[in-house]
């Protein structure tokens, strides 16, 4: 995926959201730290221009909610909720959807901040290999991968998907 392809995906996802979620102007977009934050920011910007009003955007950190703490120690990043999420539509955004564990952790974390009216999931890349019953609501692109491959959207988001080990030996 090159820069243009990603930009096009974001635009398409935004219009999907606008079409399927009539209440989207009141939604809160939360990027899952760290990779999801630029995706959420871009989606919020796109939705803002679609709706003509500023869409709330923030971030959520799931370090303390992971089920693999102790095996690896994620560095906690800030959780920034722009508004009270009680009764609001929350759209979680992430760069890559893989096992689904991060999303579950994000839902657990969200529960500690309040009761959202609904939670949707938007991901730029769905690479498959789910380990939990999680399905995205909005997807930029489906990519077929081997389990051991790595998929990464670079931090600056205006970036490419990389395959550091396309053929893992």
């Amino acid at each position: 995926m090159d820069q243009t392809e990603i930009r096009e995906s974001i635009v398409r996802m935004a219009s999907d959201i606008a079409r399927k979620e009539p209440n989207y102007p009141h939604a809160v977009l939360l990027g899952i730290q760290k990779g999801g934050v630029p995706i959420a920011r871009a989606l919020a910007a796109e939705l803002s221009s679609l709706s003509g009003r500023t869409i709330a955007f923030g971030s959520i950190d799931v370090s303390f909610y992971r089920d693999d703490l102790g095996q690896r120690l994620p560095y906690p990043e800030p959780t920034v909720l722009p508004t009270d999420i009680n009764g609001r539509l929350v759209i979680l955004a992430d760069s890559v959807l893989f096992s689904g564990r991060t999303v579950v952790a994000a839902c657990d974390a969200l529960k500690d901040y309040g009761r959202a009216a609904a939670i949707r999931l938007a991901v730029l890349v769905d690479r498959g290999h789910r380990e939990l019953p999680i399905a995205p609501d909005f997807v930029g692109k489906y990519i077929t991968t081997e389990f051991h491959q790595k998929v990464r959207v670079r931090d600056d988001f205006v970036a490419v998907v990389t395959y550091p080990n396309p053929t893992t030996p």
């Binding site: 303390f64 909610y65 703490l69 906690p76 990043e77 959780t79 657990d108 500690d112 901040y113 309040g114």
Partner: peptide, 20 residues
Amino acid sequence: HAAARTFRDVIAREIKKVPA
């Protein structure tokens, strides 16, 4: 200090507990 900054946010919320 950096981690403590995150936890200051946690203990200021209504549910002051994380499952870490």
